[in-house]
């Protein structure tokens, strides 16, 4: 379980996060939804210790993040993390080199699933393929938790479908996933839990199926209620 406890984060005088708390369970897909602001990405960065927080605490399975955590949790940012000069195969070698959690079989599987050519250079990839390589590098790690920042933004519909398919596949099975989005449509039925963020606070944290069952509302209904209130 990832526990985000009352974290605040200031950039200069601006409070980007102002006491954000939520949990994300293993085996569930948690979606951080925010229609504006930079809060979502900051939360993921904070979980990965890629940005310092001003107060609060983040625990991963009860522990603070340390260097060994990166074998248990990985982050797929919205931009590719590998060098443009690298071939896809170089990027994979790099990952295999540093991570015990690297699963070559799965990497190869993903390569053919995404129909990618390992000899292609990252700099020459299309937007959609870049996003897929980025996804591949994270998904091929045998980690318990997977964080993804806006995996669907700015790419074509077919790539989006392919990526969406990943969420229902064995590739994320039993893992805890946190994704951020500002646009819920693509993943409405994919997520377990929605965390609605606005202006640095969590407005509502709910289970999507429960809300449908007990309140008869779609996620967008709830968003409409919450954000326009």
């Amino acid at each position: 379980m990832i526990e985000v406890k009352d974290i605040t984060k200031k950039f200069g005088r601006k409070k980007v996060l102002n006491g954000v708390s939520f949990t994300a369970n293993k085996g569930e897909i948690t979606c951080l939804i925010g229609i504006n602001g930079v809060g979502k990405t900051t939360v993921l960065n904070a979980i990965m210790n890629l940005t310092p927080i001003n107060s609060g605490e983040i625990l991963i399975d009860g522990n603070k993040i340390n260097k060994d955590s990166y074998e248990k949790i990985t982050f797929i940012p919205d931009a590719i993390t590998m060098l443009p000069s690298m071939k896809i195969s170089d990027a994979m070698t790099f990952m295999a080199d540093f991570y015990n959690a690297w699963n070559q079989t799965r990497a190869d599987e993903l390569l053919s699933f995404f129909k990618l050519d390992a000899n292609e250079r990252i700099s020459s990839l299309s937007k959609g393929n870049t996003a897929k390589v980025n996804m591949l590098l994270g998904l091929a790690l045998d980690v318990d938790y997977l964080l993804m920042d806006e995996p669907f933004s700015g790419i074509d519909i077919f790539s989006r479908e392919q990526i969406a398919e990943v969420f229902t596949s064995h590739l994320v099975e039993d893992r805890g996933v946190i994704i951020t989005t500002h646009e819920i449509n693509d993943i409405e039925h994919l997520i377990d839990k929605a965390v609605l963020l606005n202006d640095g606070v969590v407005l509502r944290e709910f289970n999507a199926e429960e809300v449908r069952e007990t309140e008869g509302k779609s996620i967008i209904d709830v968003m409409r209620e919450v954000y326009h209130a």
Binding site: P77, F98, I122
Partner: peptide, 17 residues
Amino acid sequence: LGKNTFAYRLFMLPTAR
């Protein structure tokens, strides 16, 4: 610099930064 923020990768390596 650039779109490819390699710093992400470097700082997420399972080794002392």
